[in-house]
Design a protein around this nucleic acid. Structure first.
Lengths: 248, 248
DNA sequence: CGATGTCTTGAAGCGCCTCAATTTCTGTGG
DNA sequence: CCACAGAAATTGAGGCGCTTCAAGACATCG
């Protein structure tokens, strides 16, 4: 896990529309760049941080993807998030001064290191940034509630359909195809995240394919019937406009 | 749902240790009081806000309790939170400018209205308050992850045991008994929150009683074997130190 | 007092898990 | 390049935990 200066600026970044620079003025972005200078490469399977590590910074994903997990006292593990470029990691660590969760790279990834005390000071000075940070926290909470609904009330097929629709729309926001993508996580992680077993997830993938909803080959997923899948998910594609929109 | 000036100041408030004033200096508390002047009485069964209502303020619970729910497109409901005095409501509303959830009073309750734009301005000026707000957001996220673990991986008995331990410790923090309390929510809400049915919850209450872990009579709960219940919950009483501790 | 909502208890059914066997994929070294 | 080992994914059969459905007990309130 090397830490080296990679000369990429926010204003050139592929995900600036989704990340902290969103909505900032040119000059404020320049100030933000001073905070986001450090980058970190995390290889697939390595952890960006582990539970118990001191909290010093937030991390913005530039490329790659991560899974967040917590481990209970008895060793039981729960995958709580899958994170894509432009999203922030570490938000849950502020209050306890240590990370309560693990962030493991699902593929070779690159993140911006955002020392939180510097970000805090900058936000004090740049109301737009401050509001954006609130919005990210708030949006994160809103999203968690949707997952609670999924885990609390929904059938296995609905859960998987909802995840596929969710990932699809998040890829779309990033300019990738919404109908075809490569899942960066293994079936076991999907199952764990959805509160299911890998076997059930595998069976569902097969069933969805048989029903003509998707076409799968390992982690390569093609959505053939977006409407049908959305109906299964029960969200009516609502994820499309559920991402953060921190206007003003 | 009346809105009237009730002359109570933060410095006199029963839950100031748990609420926004925590850690603030005398003079900063005075400034905070100017923001928190408005109170609102919400009668049992009434909603403090509903999904779709414009977001204008956060609410700090002074007395009583609330349940937060979201309603899916198909009408399915999920209880996402039970909130007690000193806790904040409305945090999930910031990003979308409207509340995504409902907050219904479980009993006659009183809240402080915190107009968010005023709070924002004050926080800009009072770093301790700013950090406290971050801490509350962050803590909230951390808590949600624990619930995900509960819903994703735990058996019905573990879920209920964990909820009882959780509520017990939250009452304790407020100076009430940790071993005996009155649940303000009906079985259906508990079941919904835990992703179970009311019948299952009822059966578990009966079983816990038969096993000598608790003594229940309707909503009146007495915990007879805190250690045993904690072991069932799998948390080893970890909820005790999981509340927000927004030092510096 | 009946009406209504909450809670409890029982019996039957189903959805997902568990266990197990096989196939496919991935990387590694000969 | 192929052989091999280990992991990941698939598929099947059986079982269990919780849900569903139904009936009754209990409390509260007009």
């Amino acid at each position: 896990m090397s830490e080296r200066p990679i000369s990429v600026r926010c204003s050139d970044c592929a995900v600036k529309r989704l990340c902290l620079p969103a909505g900032l003025s040119e000059s404020d972005i320049v100030r933000l760049e001073r905070v986001t200078r450090a980058k970190k490469i995390v290889k697939a399977g390595d952890c960006l941080y582990r539970a118990g590590n001191p909290f010093t910074a937030l991390y913005a994903i530039r490329s790659g993807s991560f899974k967040s997990t917590i481990i209970a006292a008895d060793g039981d593990t729960q995958v709580t998030h899958f994170s894509l470029p432009g999203e922030l990691l570490g938000l849950d660590a502020y209050s306890g001064h240590t990370h309560p969760s693990y962030a493991e790279a699902l593929e070779d990834s690159c993140v911006c290191v955002l020392p939180f005390n510097q970000l805090e000071i900058l936000a004090q000075d740049v109301p737009t940034l401050q509001r954006h940070i609130y919005a990210i926290f708030s949006e994160e909470l809103r999203g968690e509630n949707e997952i609670l609904l999924l885990l609390g009330k929904r059938s296995a097929e609905t859960r998987l359909a909802a995840l596929l629709i969710n990932i699809s729309s998040r890829y779309a926001r990033r300019g990738y195809s919404s109908s075809r993508f490569l899942l960066s996580m293994p079936r076991t992680d999907i199952a764990n995240y959805l509160g299911l077993t890998a076997e059930t997830v595998s069976r569902l993938f097969s069933r969805f394919q048989k029903e003509g909803l998707i076409q799968v080959e390992g982690r390569d997923v093609k959505i053939l019937d977006m409407v049908g899948l959305s109906e299964l998910a029960g969200t009516h594609c609502s994820y499309d406009d559920s991402e953060l929109s921190a206007r003003q």
